[in-house]
């Protein structure tokens, strides 16, 4: 039972929310965009949206724009 975040494997728990997933990631994060299986998860939903087993997750540092 695992997911991949930016191509790196991470263990997965039943009911894991996006927020819990981010908290478990190492290092200081500056990311603002999370995509689960290609779909962006609004930051307003990070506490409630769950990550399914086997999900392919992208956590992208957005410092650009402009």
């Amino acid at each position: 039972m695992s997911i991949t975040i930016n191509d790196e494997e991470m263990s997965w728990n039943q009911g894991m929310t996006v927020r819990q997933m981010l908290d478990a990631m190492p290092g200081q994060l500056h990311m603002v965009v999370v995509r689960v299986n290609g779909k962006m998860v609004s930051r307003h939903d990070w506490d409630t949206a769950t990550v399914p087993d086997g999900a392919k997750v992208e956590v992208v540092d957005i410092i650009a724009g402009g």
């Binding site: 930016n6 290092g27 994060l29 500056h30 990311m31 540092d61 410092i63 650009a64």
Partner: peptide
């Protein structure tokens, strides 16, 4: 410059 960033960028002193 900053629309595609290195994977270890967030570990640098000034990621921006």
């Amino acid at each position: 410059w900053n629309d595609i960033v290195p994977t270890d960028n967030k570990e640098t002193a000034e990621p921006a």
